[in-house]
Design a protein around this nucleic acid. Structure first.
Length: 431
RNA sequence: GGAGGGGUUCCCGAGUGGCCAAAGGGAUCAGACUGUAAAUCUGACGCGAAAGCUUCGGUGGUUCGAAUCCACCCCCCUCCA
């Protein structure tokens, strides 16, 4: 492997499989190349599962190549069956079209559009599929696919072999659509490399075959590993669900906290996956952390880097402002505008009418989403784990909601920061 | 169509008439220890502040009493056709 870019990707552990491995390095070294990665609209936002391919597109651009971000306006209508246990529910074309627009904006954050020959472009596969008629598709595209080969693909095998599941013709056809995208992009843009997660291998190789059959072109494929955690739990989930890239769904604060809570065993690997820091810098950081006793610095670096990439410097500043305020315990030092800012920055918050408060703290805190049940609140109160503006509450306070939320105890007469346990915060504003 | 096995609280899984809100494990939440870690230990873990209320695929039934027995129905798995 001679290309410096590929060597770097290799060092980062970002290469899972390569199609055309023998020729790819020389091809990349031969000039500005065009490559693409697809993102299907399955919601109105991407989540951090898409971050690795998104950042890898950027890595190629930084190395002087031209990235195309494909938004799957067409494929999103069909649904990718790869390694999915069940057939998916179809969404309406209107809904998908709305998502396409949001995802187009999201992916645009990660690539540079004004970079000379390496300028990025966002494309939509609906542009070259929506006007194609069925017979053309079946004769010109479908004829190149062997069903025998398609059903051999690992990505759909489970669905085909397992009793109780099954796959519709619609989803089965997905591979052909994605393959056609690659062939079409190779024709339109001279795009010769497709990136994807490891689950995309079958779809990518399908496209490589099709580009060769339809246009006699040699194109390449590269997949990245599925991000895993050492403890075996699924990457990208928290108690409150999926970690999204959209700040309206996952606030920069929550996003920052997600990365800050990365396990030690995972953090250096994640630094290589999710940041642009040189591998040597990351290795040096790891050595420094290991020599020092106590808390490693890596999580803070990771959280800072990734939050800035996804939410910008302002988003990072907001996340750090909240984190500093809450975890330093210096709540009294917050100014009135800081408190209002916390809410805008994504700290969970709610307004309370002093005249119509819940009868008990258990209700108040479960309603605010700080605990799943009254039992948990009771447990926490009994252990001095509930704090209002830093003051510990006890079980005897359970039915004294009004006293606990008295304006004289509130910051600036109206703000109460509730804390349950070490990490769960909620801002109550008295109105 | 025939024969057998099974559906239990978030998950796995015990429980075959009262001692069952239901063993055990996992997950989760909280505490201690720490670094807003890991490991370990402790507590909680259907809902409810409590009294109490609602659960063991569904519907009916037997019984003082049913997750446990009976009838019918639904779903899943295995084997045979």
């Amino acid at each position: 492997m001679s290309s410096a870019l590929l060597t770097d990707l290799q060092d980062r552990g970002l290469i899972f499989q390569m199609a055309g491995e023998d020729k790819l390095p020389a091809w990349l070294d031969g000039g500005t190349r065009t490559l693409y990665c697809g993102f299907d609209p399955t919601a109105d936002s991407l989540h951090i599962g898409s971050l690795v391919p998104l950042l890898t597109l950027r890595r190629f651009q930084l190395a002087g190549h031209r990235p195309l971000a494909l938004v799957g306006g067409a494929t999103g209508l069909i649904g990718d069956p790869s390694f999915k246990a069940q057939e998916r529910q179809l969404n309406t074309p209107e809904v998908i079209a709305g998502w396409v627009e949001k995802i187009r904006q999201q992916v645009s954050r990660f690539v540079e559009f004004d970079a000379g020959p390496a300028s990025a472009e966002v494309v939509n596969n609906l542009d070259w599929t929506q006007d194609m008629d069925v017979l053309t598709f079946l004769r010109d595209v479908g004829k190149h696919f062997s069903v025998n080969a398609m059903i051999q693909k690992e990505s759909v095998r489970q669905r085909i072999e397992r009793e109780g599941s099954g796959i519709s013709f619609t989803e089965f056809t997905y591979m052909i659509l994605q393959s056609f995208d690659f062939a079409e992009l190779s024709r339109r843009y001279d795009c010769s490399l497709q990136l994807g997660g490891s689950d995309q291998w079958g779809n990518i190789t399908g496209g490589i075959d099709l580009a060769r059959r339809m246009y006699g072109k040699q194109v390449f494929g590269l997949t990245m590993p599925l991000v895993t955690k050492a403890d075996g739990t699924k990457f990208g989930k928290t108690e409150s669900g999926t970690v999204w890239l959209d700040p309206a769904r996952t606030s920069p604060y929550a996003f920052y906290q997600f990365w800050l809570n990365t396990a030690d065993v995972d953090v250096y690997r994640f630094l290589k996956y999710f940041t642009f820091l040189p591998v040597a810098t990351i290795d040096a950081l790891q050595r420094a952390d290991e020599e020092r006793q106590g808390r490693p610095e890596a999580q803070a670096v990771l959280a800072r880097e990734v939050t800035a990439l996804v939410h910008g410097d302002a988003g990072l500043a907001a996340a750090q402002r909240i984190t500093d305020a809450l975890f330093s315990g210096e709540l009294a030092q917050l100014s009135e505008s800081d408190l209002q800012q916390l809410r805008q920055d994504g700290l969970p918050a709610s307004e309370l009418e002093p005249g119509s408060l819940p009868a008990t703290l258990t209700h108040l805190l479960t309603d605010a989403g700080m605990a799943a049940s009254g039992k948990q609140v009771k447990d926490a109160l009994g252990r001095q784990a509930v704090f209002f503006n830093g003051r510990a509450l006890g079980w005897e306070d359970n039915d004294r909601v009004a006293q606990c939320l008295d304006r004289s105890l509130a910051l600036y007469g109206r703000f109460v920061i509730a804390r349950l346990g070490k990490k769960k915060y909620h801002l109550f504003e008295l109105v």
